[in-house]
Design a binder for these strands. Structure first.
Lengths: 218, 218
DNA sequence: CACGTTAGTGTAATTTTGACACGAAGATAG
DNA sequence: CTATCTTCGTGTCAAAATTACACTAACGTG
């Protein structure tokens, strides 16, 4: 911006609206799921959409994303990562809207009762089985998934999908669900243990089989 | 955006201006350089700034970036990569401005005579020796450099810094300048030749020493 | 034709990655 | 109480990728 021809250039054209959309994922019933809000009014009434909303004058974009996630979905988001900007002139039929998209992960033990204060309804949908999405939100979800998968293989981001305490088998399952590829058990365990990000606890998860050691984040 | 409480939410608050800024880099005299435009008016009159400008109603952001780069700096940009969004409420003293930042590379044989049609003056500055920058453009340049370095090690992006025909020694020099670390000559050559991105030409670059094979992109 | 300068090349050591199978521990049912 | 079922937890070896390393070749110049 800012190096424009004259001081009033800012006003030569109408300003677009600026909004954030948040693609927040979790694991539910062994599938990767994304949080969607049901639209109560036109356009796209009855369709589902990513949580999000318009930027306010006194906040920056990430604050906007965090606020909207909280207001619409009752979710106290952990880390938000900006992964794209959507700016096609006709992406919103009412008005010109630029959307800055954020990616978030929610650990599977904190799936709130979906008490979206603002939105009509909020639900988790398996990404393999999405309903009709409003606007270009299908495209945004696809971009979010691509971003998630590409960082999942290179970072510790998947720990954000885990509850506070978990077994290595569950962590590996999360990895396999997100990347859609199976991992070797021994290699996987060696890798994550050497990373130093996990701490062994004293406790074991029990079941009709040999108990599994429970770990937590360092 | 879009899943807001009522249909007029868009207008509850004034819309911010939306702009693009472009950090375009090249190699000059063995140093990495970024293109800056001298500001002709307040605020920050006399300071230098990244090329960029406001989004028009009929274009998307990447088109805006391409257009501004052309108008202000006379540069026909190659590939533009979006790497960040800057949204601090007070980043422009006049008005609320959201800036979407793009990264570009220019091959060193196409440094146009800087005929920025719009801007007062346009010059390349070595990134190690930047002047006072307007707005938060120092921060944007730092973010662009970080993005450039992180992709340089993992992609073929550095070929965009090369002229049409170049020697492997010059390509390696570009790599070393951008990453700030020396590479082993034999390993570097083996790697880029095996990548299949380069094609040997018949020609040699001559000098007071053994001639060097000239390559070009496939 | 001797010297200075940069180009060009291969191999061995090390590290990293990937493949692979079986005994251990507890729950349950007969 | 013992047999069975299920999941847990573990180490080694081969292959591949990466890194380290040094000398001769080719040309220009004086």
């Amino acid at each position: 911006m800012s190096t424009h021809e004259d001081g009033s250039f800012t006003y030569r054209y109408p300003h677009p609206a600026v909004a954030t959309d948040i693609a927040i994922f979790t694991l539910r019933e062994g599938r990767l799921a994304v949080l969607l809000i049901e639209r109560g009014e036109e356009p796209f009434q009855g369709d589902w959409a990513l949580p999000g909303g318009f930027l306010r004058p006194d906040e920056d974009l990430i604050s906007c994303a965090r606020r909207e996630l909280c207001e619409e979905a009752g979710v106290e988001a952990p880390l938000l990562r900006q992964f794209g900007v959507f700016s096609a002139p006709d992406r919103d039929p009412r008005d010109r809207v630029i959307s800055v998209a954020y990616l978030a992960l929610l650990s599977s033990d904190r799936l709130k009762p979906q008490a979206g204060s603002d939105a009509a309804d909020a639900r988790w949908f398996a990404v393999a089985d999405l309903p009709a999405l409003a606007f270009d939100h299908r495209q945004i979800v696809e971009a979010a998934l691509a971003a998630l998968r590409s960082v999942a293989e290179a970072t510790d981001i998947l720990l954000d999908l885990m509850p506070a305490r978990f077994t290595l088998t569950r962590l590996q399952a999360a990895y396999e669900i997100v990347t859609s590829q199976v991992a070797d058990k021994r290699n996987f365990r060696a890798r994550v243990l050497e990373s130093g990000l996990l701490q062994e606890t004293e406790d074991m998860e029990r079941g009709p089989h040999r108990p599994a050691r429970i770990y937590r984040r360092v």
